[in-house]
Amino acid sequence: MLHAKVKLNILKEIVDTASILVPEAKFNIEDNGLMTKAVDPSRIAMVSIEVRKEAFEEFEAKESMLGIDLEKLKETLKLGSSEDVLILDWDKDANTLVLKVGNLTRKMPLIDAGGMPDPKMPELDLPAKVTLPVEEIKKGVAAAKSISDNISLKISEDGFDLSSKAEGADQANLHLPKDALIDIEIRESARSTYPLEQFSKMINAIKSPNVTIRLGTDYPLDIIFEMANGMGNGRYLLAPRVENY
């Protein structure tokens, strides 16, 4: 059972965060909020979202699972403006999600969530961690785009580095010294290379001003950020590219 009122921009944030990786997702609804986890089809990236009930204007729910077509939901969200309050109802018998924006009602069939996987997200033991403004990373990503399909991340005693290199002399490097970072914790320095396209999609989907990056050497990347004005959190994992196979 689900009955919720939520600001359109918050629902949009949830949908956008997941939809860069998957066209549909399974949402687990509990009485204190909702959560979802999904792996992209190529299994190189993963997203996890948890939003507490405080992020909603109203939230009444009992444990349930909803399989939602994110592309359809996205289209519906275009019908209102960001400050509109949306009413969500789950009609269990018809297996539809009913959305009301102002005078508009949109009924949406749900996807069978039973067949959708519940990916595991282990606790990762990563040796380096930084917290910094998302805007800084965006600059580094924009610079890398014209150069290569890959981007390298490095955390060391000197600070945080984002770099990319082409076969010729083209190169871009964004260096953030320690005092430009909000926080840094290092056990040992770490460096890995990631596919730029996915990394850039993730960074651009993040709405919160700051982001925490946890890094290992040739190991998946962990990006942690706040959602829904601090009333939820999101996480992306991304598998690295390893030069010597």
Partner: peptide, 10 residues
């Protein structure tokens, strides 16, 4: 390109 499944069982 590695996959997440190379590191743990998804």
């Amino acid at each position: 390109q590695r996959k997440l499944s190379d590191y743990w069982e998804l």
